[in-house]
């Protein structure tokens, strides 16, 4: 077993364990912590795939900002342990089979389509190339996202403001 495969397996196991724990844990903070574990191990996987910049952004933005916001809101609303209510019948009888079916379908499609594809031996993507691409080929979508963020900030402010 190569060192890379070992690292992959450890990180993948961590990610899956985190995702399962997200479902099993009943307190929202514990779910949030599990999700952070998933995100950090995904950042490790990105490093393994040679996407250094994306890996750093994943931790800075996802784990370091978005999840902090989640934890902040959970603390602010003092959310307690999840109530156990009767699941709606739809979720109980259709949800789980559908979820398993979806996973099986995806796995089947991947197994048929991509099983023989080994990754192209590209070195770590230099951040400079990524930046060039972002600011030349994708400059219009990039500027659009800034408008999107502005709208999101305004929306959040308007929604969360207390009416006086």
């Amino acid at each position: 077993m190569s060192a890379e495969l070992a690292v992959f397996l450890v990180l993948a196991a961590l990610a899956v364990a985190g995702a399962v724990s997200l479902i099993v844990q009943r307190h929202p903070i514990h779910s949030a912590l599990s999700l952070i574990v998933v995100m950090v191990s995904l950042a490790g996987l990105y490093l393994l795939l040679g996407a250094e910049f994306i890996s750093a952004v994943q931790i800075i933005v996802y784990a370091g900002a978005i999840m902090v916001l989640f934890v902040f809101v959970i603390m602010l609303l003092n959310a307690g342990i999840e109530e156990r209510t009767n699941l709606s019948r739809m979720a109980r009888y259709v949800g789980l089979p559908l979820g398993v079916l979806l996973m099986a379908l995806l796995a089947y499609a991947i197994g048929r389509g991509a099983s023989s594809q080994a990754p192209a031996a590209a070195g770590p993507a230099p951040t400079k190339t990524l930046a060039m691409m972002l600011f030349q080929d994708f400059v219009f979508p990039f500027e659009l996202t800034s408008i999107l963020i502005l709208i999101a900030i305004l929306g959040a402010l308007v929604l969360a403001k207390r009416e006086s």
């Binding site: 992959f8 995806l106 796995a107 991947i110 197994g111 990754p119």
Partner: peptide, 17 residues
């Protein structure tokens, strides 16, 4: 070298979860 399909299967599993 980790085959690319491993990553895709992991992605599918995470999505399903």
């Amino acid at each position: 070298m980790v085959p690319i399909s491993y990553y895709l299967v992991l992605s599918a599993v995470l999505f399903g979860l």
